[in-house]
Design a protein around this nucleic acid. Structure first.
Lengths: 189, 189
DNA sequence: GATTCGTTGCACACTGGTGTGCAAAAATGA
DNA sequence: TCATTTTTGCACACCAGTGTGCAACGAATC
């Protein structure tokens, strides 16, 4: 049954989200299954993490390309992107922690496309003078993105309050003036 | 000899900075000493990390209180703080990674005073309307601080370029207008 | 020269996690 | 009911890291 496999994946995301160092045993029991069964679906821990990451990349690039196609200004695009990405980012926040450590390289490789799309968006904003240029696009996008995840990890991660805070904060650090940032965050429900 | 002990501490900071999961053995060999010797000075890994953290807290609070006493506006204080803290923060950046995981609680406890001082400074800035208020001071300070460390972890961590980028970015996300942020970052060498 | 102190080099026990093999049991469904 | 697939429950080997015990060693000190 793929049902079991899917449940393991869902639960793993949850368990690892709370403790990135959780073992296969922890994930198994949380999924109401025996450790051996998990190994039946995922030959190694890395396989599990990789599958999770691939899922995340799929969902994120979908949102990102869709939003990118709207043709709006870069800052508006970013605001919409964060608002729509928020639930996804929050769900997959564990990947940020997992990027350091054992599987860092594998995850980093898979997340590459997302990083590129983000950097492109920031570059576009810089070229049209709506984003600050004190940092290269590649790094600025990562730092802004990191801040979003950091907020997702904090206490306000529940509800839309966190999404709003993340949108405003990331827009600010991208160099968008406060009034504009608040306006952009405001028209997202 | 305290000489050995000090060298172990220095090297440990370095080794752990590159890989937070490095073991006592790695630290020992990097210090040109045998694993058993490290245990002679630090009964457990936690003791080592704790000592490192205490060092960091001492250095950071020194800078923070000194800068705080200048009586300048909150944004100027923050700028000076980041500029002066930069080498220290970069050196102790491993503590950010170590906060999640095994020793998280211990480190968090020791770092408490620093967090408080930071939150107070941000609160002061919010009360005098130079910092944005879209997030509570406690969280805003952590996110801004986290961004500083994230930049310290990135490629530009060398030289004063990173310090400048960190100052500007953190000021931006605190709600300081871009022109003001650049001006504040500019008069720090 | 004897003593002291830090260091070394083992050996050891322990822990906690990973991944495998295999037979029995349970669910699925034809 | 029979056959297939999945799950289970052990047992096992393995690894990497932690922390300890102890005797031997070397250099400085008295």
């Amino acid at each position: 049954m793929n049902e079991t496999r899917d449940r393991i994946l869902d639960v793993a995301l949850d368990v690892l989200g709370q403790n990135p160092d959780a073992g296969m045993g922890d994930i198994a029991s949380a999924a109401g299954v025996v450790r051996r069964t998990v190994y039946g679906h995922f030959p190694s821990r890395l396989d599990l993490v990789r599958t999770l990451t691939e899922r995340a990349v799929t969902e994120m690039t979908a949102v990102l390309t869709e939003v990118n196609a709207s043709g709006a200004e870069a800052d508006a695009t970013w605001a919409e992107f964060i608002a729509r990405l928020w639930p996804v980012a929050h769900r997959y926040r564990v990947l940020l922690a997992l990027r350091r450590g054992e599987y860092g390289e594998a995850i980093h490789g898979l997340l590459g496309p997302v990083d590129e799309l983000l950097a492109d968006l920031v570059k576009r904003g810089q070229d049209s003078d709506v984003f600050a240029q004190h940092l290269p696009a590649g790094i600025l996008s990562q730092v802004a993105y990191g801040a979003v995840f950091a907020i997702a990890d904090s206490d306000l991660s529940n509800g839309t309050l966190g999404a709003r805070a993340a949108t405003i904060t990331s827009l600010l650090m991208l160099g968008v003036p406060e009034t504009r940032a608040i306006a952009l965050a405001g028209d997202q429900p």
